[in-house]
């Protein structure tokens, strides 16, 4: 599945850079945030700020980079409930 990314600023309190993630039918499936310097061990990682449908998980994961994030999203969307 091909995902499309669109840069966006996310108002998390410290105005972070993020990405809107769309599926092949241009439906919004997730919002990713690039974690700034204030997160200790997690700084620089990408965070699942919001996920919709099957991506609506309780404990929002973080990813080393956008490739890893997209791989997780694809796998999750392909999974049967």
């Amino acid at each position: 599945m091909t995902l499309t990314l669109q840069p966006v600023r996310v108002a998390t309190g410290s105005d972070e850079e993020g990405m809107l993630v769309f599926d092949e039918e241009q439906r919004l499936v997730a919002v990713l945030t690039h974690l700034g310097e204030q997160y200790d061990g997690l700084s620089g990682r990408w965070y699942l700020e919001a996920g919709f449908g099957r991506l609506g998980v309780q404990d929002h994961p973080t990813y080393a980079d956008l490739d890893e994030a997209q791989a997780w999203i694809r796998q999750r969307l392909a999974r049967e409930r």
Partner: peptide
């Protein structure tokens, strides 16, 4: 922060933000 996250049912990132 990760232990607080598991106690209040949210992510470590979110705990970090609310503590800030």
């Amino acid at each position: 922060q990760s232990e607080f996250a598991d106690a209040i049912g949210t992510s470590t990132v979110h705990v970090n933000r609310v503590i800030q």
